[in-house]
Amino acid sequence: MTDQILPSANTKTIDGKRTATMQIKGVLFDLDGTLVDTAPDLVLALNLALKDFGLPSQHLEDIRFAASHGSLALVNAAQPHLNDEEKAAIQQALLEHYHNVNGQEAKLFDGMSALLEHLSGQQIPFGVVTNKAARFARPLLHRLALANKMPAIISGDSTTQSKPHPAPMRLAASQIGVSCQGILYLGDAKRDLEAARNSDMLGGIAHWGYIGNNDEAHLWPHDFGFDTPVAVLELLRQG
């Protein structure tokens, strides 16, 4: 597939150049499904939890789409007919197993290393805003040798509100030292793009992430859509 930058119908232009591109002074990422492919670890933890309860395991590719929406979404996708109490028990087991396997198979998406190298080389600050709990997010980023490169790592429990609320977004903006209007936020879920819009950031859909067939991502509020991280890099080079 050819890397594509897909501007939304609302993207403004001056003299044929996107004014938004020239505004980007910082980049923030969602974690699961945007910066890092964490689905292998999450589905492994899910299958260990399902095994604990004598339930059948799931194939990674059949359930990958749910990985961006948290542990309960994975349980719901795997066992939609269980009652809430049963799902909660499996979710707790999943989290316990995930603590042990976190980072075991997770890796940056193809092309992401080049994008991060460009950001570092151009002294464009970057960071993460995720709804993932800090006890999982920070060890993962340390394991990937990214934590020390990010002035902002905002987790689901860093503020009293989580995405799509603007509070974690604004905290990250203050930590990287860039106004919200100068930040591109990349995410692969509706709440990510709503969070970007709610905080006056530019929103970019990470189409390489965990977007399901029924998600209707084209309806999410956004300024850009990207097929790959390389497409983000190409946009930044235009600036």
Rank of each mutant, 00 (worst) to 15 (best):
Met112Gln: 03
Glu86Asp: 13
Thr130Gly: 07
Val101Asn: 00
Asp84Glu: 15
Gly156Thr: 09
Val101Cys: 01
Leu72Val: 05
Gln122Leu: 09
Ile63Leu: 05
Gln122Val: 07
Thr159Arg: 02
Arg143Gly: 10
Met169Val: 05
Pro168Ile: 02
Val101Tyr: 02
Ile90Arg: 11
Lys51Phe: 05
Leu82Met: 12
Val101Phe: 01
Ala152Phe: 11
Ala73Leu: 04
His142Glu: 15
Glu85Met: 12
Leu108Asp: 00
Val101Ser: 00
Arg135Val: 15
Ala73Asn: 10
Phe126Val: 02
Val101Gln: 00
Asn102Ile: 01
Phe126Cys: 10
Arg143Tyr: 00
Leu119His: 04
Ile90Gln: 12
Ala152Tyr: 12
Ala167Met: 12
Phe109Tyr: 15
Leu95Ser: 12
Asn100Tyr: 13
Ala77Phe: 08
Asn83Gly: 10
Lys107Leu: 07
Gln79Ile: 07
Val75Ile: 10
Ala93Tyr: 12
Glu86Phe: 10
Lys87Ile: 09
Ala93Gly: 15
Phe136Cys: 02
His97Tyr: 15
Gly111Tyr: 04
Leu119Asn: 01
Ala152Lys: 10
Phe53Gln: 05
Ala134Asp: 15
Ala77Val: 08
Ile63Val: 13
Ser120His: 11
Asp110Cys: 07
Gln79Glu: 15
Asn102Met: 01
Ala134Ile: 13
Ser71Ala: 14
Glu105Phe: 14
Ala106Ile: 14
Leu50Asp: 08
Gly127Lys: 03
Gln122His: 12
His165Asp: 12
Pro80Arg: 04
Leu60His: 07
Asp62Tyr: 03
Lys51Val: 12
Pro166Asn: 03
Arg143Trp: 00
Ala106Asp: 05
His165Thr: 03
Gly70Gln: 04
Leu94Phe: 15
Pro80Tyr: 06
Ser68Ile: 03
Leu140Tyr: 01
Ala88Phe: 11
Thr160Ile: 04
Pro168His: 02
Ala66Val: 07
Phe53Cys: 02
Pro139Ser: 01
Ala137Cys: 07
Gly103Asp: 05
Leu146Glu: 00
Met112Lys: 01
Gly54Gln: 07
Pro139Asp: 03
Val101Trp: 00
Leu140Cys: 08
Val129Asp: 05
Glu86Leu: 09
Gly103Cys: 08
Gln79Tyr: 07
Gln58Gly: 06
Met150Val: 09
Ala147Trp: 07
Asn100Leu: 11
Gln104Pro: 03
Leu95Cys: 13
Ala167Ile: 06
Leu82Pro: 09
His97Asp: 11
Leu141Asp: 10
Phe136Trp: 06
Ser120Cys: 05
Ala93Arg: 12
His118Trp: 11
Phe109Lys: 07
Ala152Asp: 14
Ala106Gln: 06
Ala77Ile: 13
Ala66Pro: 02
Pro166Arg: 03
Ala137Asp: 09
His97Gln: 09
Leu50Gly: 04
Leu74Asp: 06
Lys163Tyr: 11
Ala106Met: 09
Glu105His: 15
Ala89Cys: 08
Arg135Ser: 14
Lys163Asn: 09
Ala167Thr: 14
Ser57Val: 09
Leu141Val: 15
Gly103Lys: 05
Gln123Trp: 04
Val128Phe: 09
Ala89Gln: 12
Leu146His: 00
Ala114Val: 05
Gly70Glu: 02
Asn102Arg: 01
Leu74Gly: 05
Ala114His: 14
Asn102Asp: 00
Val75Leu: 11
Gly111His: 10
Leu140Met: 03
His97Cys: 13
His59Arg: 06
Pro56Val: 02
Ala137Asn: 13
Leu146Trp: 00
Ala137Trp: 13
